[in-house]
Design a protein around this nucleic acid. Sequence first.
DNA 1: ACAGTTTACGAAGTCCGTAAATATC
DNA 2: GATATTTACGGACTTCGTAAACTGT
Lengths: 311, 311
Amino acid sequence: MQNMISEKSNIGVRHFRAFIAIAAEGSFRAAAAKLGIATSALTEAVQAVEQETGTQLIDRKSRPVELTAAGKQFLIDCQQIMSLHHRALRDLSLVGGLETGEVSVAAAPSLTKTLLIPALRIFRMRHPGIRILIHDDVAGRIEKMILNKEVEFAVAARWRPTTELEAEPIIHDDIGMVCSLDHRLAKCADVSFGELSEETVISLLGETGTSAMLRRSVHFPRSLLEGQLQAYSTVAQLMMIEANLGIGFLPRLAMEVMGTGGLVFVPLRGLKLRRACYILSERRRTASPAAEALKQIIRQIAKGQDTDPTR
Amino acid sequence: MQNMISEKSNIGVRHFRAFIAIAAEGSFRAAAAKLGIATSALTEAVQAVEQETGTQLIDRKSRPVELTAAGKQFLIDCQQIMSLHHRALRDLSLVGGLETGEVSVAAAPSLTKTLLIPALRIFRMRHPGIRILIHDDVAGRIEKMILNKEVEFAVAARWRPTTELEAEPIIHDDIGMVCSLDHRLAKCADVSFGELSEETVISLLGETGTSAMLRRSVHFPRSLLEGQLQAYSTVAQLMMIEANLGIGFLPRLAMEVMGTGGLVFVPLRGLKLRRACYILSERRRTASPAAEALKQIIRQIAKGQDTDPTR
DNA sequence: ACAGTTTACGAAGTCCGTAAATATC
DNA sequence: GATATTTACGGACTTCGTAAACTGT
């Protein structure tokens, strides 16, 4: 007798289904009807198991046919296997069908409010079973989180171009002066650097994407780069600006982090600075269906929000 | 999307095996080598699952290929299913392979010692994993035990022919006089009824297979039918005979219940009475492999023991 | 006799191998 | 450019249906 039992066996779910149906119906005929196949197929299936294991499962010498002792034990095993089989495939289908699962995203704070949150509102409605984990952090951290697989993708400006990351541009964000509604320049359509020489500048500590961009611009005055007041976070910076302690240079969307409140965005006259924002993903890694769905919604939202008329 | 997930799905152990191997080896190629099939078969198998569930299991855009989150969960399910699958078929094979299981037999006391016990000695050696349950009882009870499915089969003389029971003759058992070694007739080659007229007869209470047979025989003297001493069981009857309290009329094999001790079997001159002993089974019911194996051994033993030279 | 099961055989589908194309590193 | 995976396609094996033979009530 071959002892390779089940290692290379052809016995599969088909046989289990057949046997379970016969056991349940008490007859090959009824089971065949229930499964929608011919009785000969059932005969063949049961015989295959019996031959392979050398054990009779069903006693046909009685009507109605009756399970042998071994068959009764095997039936329990079959039912358990089929139950697991069913659950495994159903769970898998739910993931693919976006009915369950999880997606974790990182987002720059500036994009969280305008882009990610509106996208999430739609996504939640469409796929209420999917859990979403948001990590909002600064640009440098975000890229690391993707590479560490802590998040599946991110919505952020690009920090340092890496070959490991794929960046799909989705929205453009103008950089300009931000001040309080109460500021003397709040009502201007735009502002020149000459008008700003007396202003208190509130900047961020250390290097950020925006500060790097400003420094790279030959037109932007060096004197305005380092602020008299420096905040650690964008939120602190904006709170100070809102309190009219000074002005700052920020992307428009970053300003909107603070809500519709007392802040005004004033473009810089003669200097069109804009940063591109991207969906950042790890290269050579396929997004989960949930992540892909969320990305798609983000693209839609971004299309509507983008300040670039060429898109 | 079709929601008949797994109800009629073709996903089976083949797919699970393929996926598990790929996950374990981290590569289609290595998995194919391990399973001894072509990589294209693995591609096909994984794609089938992915298509059916609409969920990607493996991220091929990286080397080595990597399971997706859904794939990792599915892997656990696959392993569990395959483990059950393996165990179910192995258990079944063990039963068929007579490595485990149980068989219950009834036997007439007279046949237990000469037939069943020698058979069991062989059976135990060949199939030590099989549990055996022996019910020794009188003929009338034995048949009921078969019909009640308390035992799978019995070794006994036939009691009342029933259509429900199948009787396979295996051994013939001469009926003769049994007396103590110390009895005056103990050394005779045979004995006539005339020599027995003075003897004390020890019989069994009520009707037994043997007494019915003796009564049916026109040559057997009516005076010897009812004993002066009557015992309830064959053992008690034989003990009294051994104590030389009288003689009895019994089948030879029944006498041997008492061991090689102080009893002698003396044929009846001019009267060849013999009972047939059978393997009794329920009609239209297939024996378990263990039962069939035991039956086969019993047949072998019976062949050697049978007093009928025509067999 | 009748209903149920098995056998025989042929059609359709599944599985798997070869080899060429494509993708990743 | 080397290694890995997928695609295309064809042959062998499985699976299943039909119909006839067989078995049990």
